[in-house]
Design a protein around this nucleic acid. Structure first.
Lengths: 131, 131
DNA sequence: CTGAATCCCATGTGATACTG
DNA sequence: CAGTATCACATGGGATTCAG
């Protein structure tokens, strides 16, 4: 194993790094596409995610595989058959991300309006406890 | 105003767009920094977020303000005093994002290990229901 | 079908210097 | 203090082409 030095700041650094890794344009969308737990083929994913290019989908899947969030299985058949599936850890991310999709779905219109209107939202925020 | 055409795909498009907007390198970190509901000054935010450059912090705050997630207040005093605060909508995003920070904090080490080990995570995922 | 390789442009991001 | 302006560079991301 690795020595357990001051884990507090180290954990924080890793968490920060992991957050910036999953907070890119495609990762969460791919996770969402795989969220039903069923293994999916490359082309299927490309359809489901939407306007993603083959390049970025490949890249995103490779990162997810490397981070142990997705499994990649290759079936050695004549037309290559590869499918992807969430690992338990990936599925847990999917669950955590649910709150985000719900929020996005719920507030998309309001945000779009706010963007056009430049109205002043002078209300104050309530305290939120996270940890 | 705008006509209400087929809202289904329109909502989906807006939601997709909003997701990619908040899924950048800094937005969630800024939201987190403001999550306690207290107004914070620019420099304070810069310290709290971490390695963010002044440029990106400004940009991120401007986007958040435009989207009605953050308020920006300028006090016309000799040394300029500007503070930022979450709007209720911004706070609701903070709550939704909590699930993500918790997940990240919980899995950061495991993911870091998976990245180094290239072990095969051959377990299968369970079904997750979101909507 | 899956994906690597390449070219190319847009955007992200940081460093630095300057301003009210 | 809180920015704006500018340069310079890395990465993101798409289109196209090629290959097993």
């Amino acid at each position: 194993m690795d020595t357990v030095f001051d884990a507090t700041s180290e954990r924080d650094r890793l968490a920060r790094e992991l957050l910036t890794r999953i907070a890119d344009k495609w990762t969460l969308l791919v996770i969402e596409a795989l969220e039903d737990g069923a293994p999916k083929r490359f082309t299927r994913l490309q359809e489901q995610v939407g306007e993603v290019s083959q390049k970025m989908l490949t890249k995103t899947l490779r990162q997810l595989e490397r981070d142990g969030l997705v499994t990649r299985r290759v079936h050695p058949v004549v037309p290559p058959h590869v499918d992807y599936q969430l690992t338990p850890r990936g599925a847990s991310l999917g669950e955590a991300a649910c709150a985000i999709w719900n929020w996005v779905d719920e507030h998309a219109e309001a945000v779009a309006q706010a963007r056009n209107a430049t109205s002043d939202p002078r209300e104050t925020a309530q305290d939120v406890d996270c940890d």
